[in-house]
Nucleic acid binder design. Structure first.
Lengths: 117, 117
DNA sequence: ACGATATTTAACCAATACGCTAATTATTAA
DNA sequence: TTAATAATTAGCGTATTGGTTAAATATCGT
């Protein structure tokens, strides 16, 4: 993660409205209009929040096949993982326990890799 | 962690100068003057950054026995842990994202302490 | 007591952030 | 083709942020 991207990401998270969007997207992809409806702000305001979130890499925008007007937004977990690893690094602490934790994950993970899409 | 405190914490981190301070404090407590010297900004500007960091709980201020004029600042790892657990929660860490994180750990891990690679 | 030192507070300024309404773009439906 | 819908961009106002210099506060050394 570049310095600039870390900055974008933390700025993106440092706003309650944007965190609320993230909270909603945890439950699955949502259309821009749905995100507006879930909030108290106007559509243009939401559009700008979404741009900031997208620039940070925390969410991504896709198109829906049926209707080319709507845009779907969804979380990008990789970016959350990136942020997490930055936090672990700055905190120190975690480094020593990485191995144990990795082993734990190994044990817990069943899902086969390379799922066809 | 309260909502307000989460907000303060993320706002505090969303500034490169403040993160630079944190980076320095990782190596141990520092006097306000040392933090100013390590940066390009003025003492008053630094003082305000320190206030914001202190309000977030990411750092704390203590006095040094010898000289009551100087103030020492040090990290409060507890708050980093708080932030980390928030991040895990929002990410759905234990629930769904195990694969992505496992891959991430695989990539990041250097210490080959008997782990399968 | 007096001047030097460490830091914060006060006052101000430029830039940015975030809200709104109006307008624009693109697509769908009648 | 015309109207309706989904979303973004444009333009504008206000509040907040982050920087500066000057002043205040507190403490130390002589």
């Amino acid at each position: 993660m570049t310095q600039a991207n870390l900055d974008q990401t933390l700025i993106a998270l440092a706003d309650p409205t944007r965190r609320q969007v993230i909270e909603l997207l945890r439950q699955g992809p949502r259309r821009a209009g749905e995100l507006v409806a879930s909030s108290t702000i106007s559509a243009p305001a939401m559009s700008r929040h979404l741009r900031i979130l997208r620039a940070s890499g925390l969410i991504e925008e896709t198109e829906v096949p049926g209707d080319a007007r709507v845009r779907l937004y969804r979380l990008r977990p990789e970016q959350f993982a990136n942020l997490q690893s930055w936090l672990e690094e700055v905190q120190g602490f975690w480094a020593g326990q990485l191995d144990a934790f990795k082993a734990h994950v190994e044990r817990k993970t069943q899902k086969p890799k390379g799922g066809r899409r």
